[in-house]
């Protein structure tokens, strides 16, 4: 299983990472609002992460760190 770390405060909730993820790991947190006022991304199914880094590749704000 791979590990994802988010700089949540820099997330703008654009959702490009959510769409890029092939495993349905990510979702925008409908019940959370970060400092910028966005619903930030969170890993709702972290156990499914395969560490492909598609999410980080598409993140325009470089907030995702991927480790394996």
């Amino acid at each position: 299983m791979a590990k994802l770390t988010f700089k949540t405060d820099n997330c703008k909730g654009c959702g490009l990472c959510v769409n890029a993820c092939p495993k349905g790991v990510l979702s925008l947190a409908a019940d959370k609002i970060n400092k910028k006022g966005h619903h930030p991304v969170e890993a709702v199914a972290p156990e499914k992460c395969i560490g492909c880094a598609f999410c980080a590749t598409m993140c325009p704000d470089c907030i995702i760190k991927v480790e394996k």
């Binding site: 791979a2 560490g51 880094a53 980080a56 995702i64 760190k65 991927v66 480790e67 394996k68």
Partner: peptide, 8 residues
């Protein structure tokens, strides 16, 4: 192992 992180 870091697979992806912010470049320096």
């Amino acid at each position: 192992m870091v697979i992806f992180d912010k470049p320096h």
